[in-house]
Amino acid sequence: MKVSKVIVTLLNGLPETLSLLVASFFFASLIGLSMAWLYLRKNPILSDLAKIYLGIVRGTPPLLMLLLSYFGLPKLFALVGININDWAKIFFGIVGLSVGWGAYLEEAFRSAYLSVDKGQYEAALSVGMDVKHAFLQILMPQTFLIALPNIENLLIGLVKATSLVYVMGMVDMYSKATDLSNQNQGVYQLEIFIILALLYWLIVLLIEWLFRMFHRYYRYVEI
């Protein structure tokens, strides 16, 4: 079997992998931001909720998170009379991964926000900015820059975790590889998985390169 045929077959699963990655990261960030905001409201009940959420996710294998989403969500929705058994599988994949990664992103955002120098906020107020602009112009950009290395690691972790959606029968790059290796009755299996690994590596190297470029652009901003 030709290497090029393997690559083409595996790349057929790339769109599924990428849409899963982008959508999950988007919703995970949304969850992370809103949880961080709740946490920082200093409301004891809300921050306890955020703590429990983080504690549960920390101890949950991503695979299990996906399975619970796939098998559990239909049951939960059935309780309120909504049938979601026919919804696209990618929906359950996105929910499982976003809930998992949202907790880690929440932690990254919150710790970054708390480590912004308090003097920066005071300086913003002292030149007459209102609280909203002080947040948008000064606190938020600095929070984001501080959180960047963690965000990069989490995004790379998410790339790798997308391979787990095979458990719900989604056809991503990884599933294409297992299908191909089964079709060939055990020949070239090693080659298939090495090529698959190289493809994932390439995606990760690309992400690392993008973050490096971004970081270089802001190299003089020392926070």
Binding site: G119, E122, A123, Q137, I138, Q142, L145, Y218, I223
Partner: peptide, 10 residues
């Protein structure tokens, strides 16, 4: 300010 507090991202 004592520590200048120039906006680091500006």
């Amino acid at each position: 300010f004592q520590n200048y507090n120039l906006f680091k991202n500006k």
